[in-house]
Structures are given as C-alpha cells and as structure tokens.
Simulated scan of single mutants.
Amino acid sequence: MSKGLFITLEGPDGAGKTTQMDNLAAYLAKRGRSVERTREPGGTRLAEAIRQLLLKPGYGPVDPRAEILLYAAARAQHVAERIRPALTAGKIVLCDRFADSTLAYQGYGRRLGAQLVEQINNLATANLKPDLTLLLDVPVEIGLRRRPGGADRMEQENLEFHRRVRQGYLELARREPRRVRLIDGTRSPEAVWAEIQGILDGLLAG
C-alpha cells in the first residue's frame, strides 16, 4: 500500500483554488493514485451542516470566538471521520482549505492571534498537518473582482479584513517555506497549473 499524502489548497477569495483542485484530482487519477477530495468547512454530514451556519449571511453577525469554535468542531469531525481514515488507507487526500485558513481568517482577519488559533487547530486536528500546502496568492482587489455572484458571509467582509487575511497567509508562507509553497495566482490558470504540476511531481518522486 502506498503511503497516504495530505495536500491542501489555500488562498484568499478569488485565488482560483477550485480550478486547480480539479486539475490535481484529474492528474492524480490518471497516474493511478487513489484520491479523496474534500473541503472545509465540510466534508462530513455534521461539518456540512456547520458550514451552513458559518457561511450563510442570514446567520450573522457571529462573534469571532463562536466562529472559530464552529470551524474547529467541523474540522475535528472531518479529520476523524474522513481525512485520517483515507490517509490510513494510503489515499492522497486533496482538501480545499484546512487549518491554515483558520489561522489567516480568524487569527489575522478577526485578530484573534496566531497563538490561540494554533492551539485550537492542534486540538481539532489532533496535530495533523498537511504534507504539502499550495498557497495561491492574489492581491485582494483582484481576488474580490473574480468572485462569482452571491458572496457568502466571509466574502462580504470589508477590504481591510481581506487584506489582513492575505497578510496572514504570506506570513505563514514565510514561516513554513518547505510545506507551504507560495504560487502567484495572478497568472493564467494554465501557468499556475504548470507550476503546481512540477511541485507535485517532485513530491511524488520523493
């Protein structure tokens, strides 16, 4: 059985994660790898229900402490029910957002602080970390222009909030350059994918 790998895609709103997740899943399937594709918040019945509470504008405003604990509850169930079993089975788990999103959005965006967020994340994940995080970076103004209609509650936050989120992501990439690979998301989807494919091939070869 092949060793399981945990790969996450991160980035501000409008960075192009969905397109690259599609590319990743298709590429790995062609190589004969068993892929488990999921997302956060979500991925299980309980976590998807919590997602509705977190993202639907009608449930706001939400206190930042309540918000981070809801994300943590969804993540704990997701890791226990879906992610760890898939890794144990030797699958490659592809996840659209994970704990790094909470660091960026709640730690920096909500100003709860990196130390508190990391403690909560460690509890929720039982210290699980991705093997590789692909961080698609775009300036805030570009990302917000790319959004589809019907923005969710987080996407409706003001410009300064989204700038703090981006700064949190960039700080994470600076602190963990081996795990977190910073990718310029302002380029064409094809150019972004070419870089991601090179990174992935290196990981799989290793």
Rank of each mutant, 00 (worst) to 15 (best):
M1D: 07
S2A: 05
S2K: 13
K3Y: 03
K3S: 08
L5H: 07
F6M: 03
I7V: 12
P12Y: 01
A15D: 06
K17W: 04
K17H: 05
T18I: 01
Q20F: 00
A25E: 12
A26D: 11
L28I: 12
A29E: 11
G32D: 14
R37V: 14
T38H: 14
R39I: 11
G42T: 11
G43R: 08
G43I: 04
R45H: 11
L46I: 14
L46P: 00
E48C: 08
L53W: 04
L54G: 03
K56S: 03
K56P: 01
Y59R: 00
Y59A: 00
G60N: 05
G60S: 02
P61D: 02
V62T: 08
P64R: 04
Y71I: 04
A72P: 06
A74S: 15
R75Q: 05
R75F: 07
R75C: 10
A76R: 08
V79H: 10
A80K: 11
E81A: 15
E81R: 09
I83N: 03
R84E: 07
R84Q: 08
A86M: 09
T88E: 15
T88W: 10
T88S: 15
G90A: 01
G90P: 01
I92Q: 13
C95P: 09
D96L: 10
D96T: 13
R97N: 11
F98C: 06
F98Q: 04
S101A: 10
A104F: 12
A104G: 12
L112C: 08
L112R: 07
G113K: 06
A114S: 11
Q115K: 11
E118I: 09
Q119L: 14
N121A: 00
N122Q: 10
L123K: 01
A126K: 11
A126G: 15
A126F: 11
L128T: 04
K129R: 14
P130F: 05
L132P: 12
L134S: 03
L135V: 10
L135K: 02
V140W: 02
E141S: 10
E141K: 13
R146M: 14
R146Q: 15
A151T: 09
A151V: 07
D152P: 13
R153W: 00
Q156I: 00
Q156P: 05
E160R: 15
H162S: 06
H162M: 06
Y169I: 07
L170C: 13
R174I: 04
R175D: 14
E176I: 12
P177F: 13
R178K: 09
V180W: 05
R187L: 12
R187Y: 02
S188V: 07
V192S: 12
W193I: 01
A194G: 09
E195S: 05
E195Q: 10
I196E: 01
I199C: 04
I199G: 01
A205H: 00
A205L: 04
G206W: 00
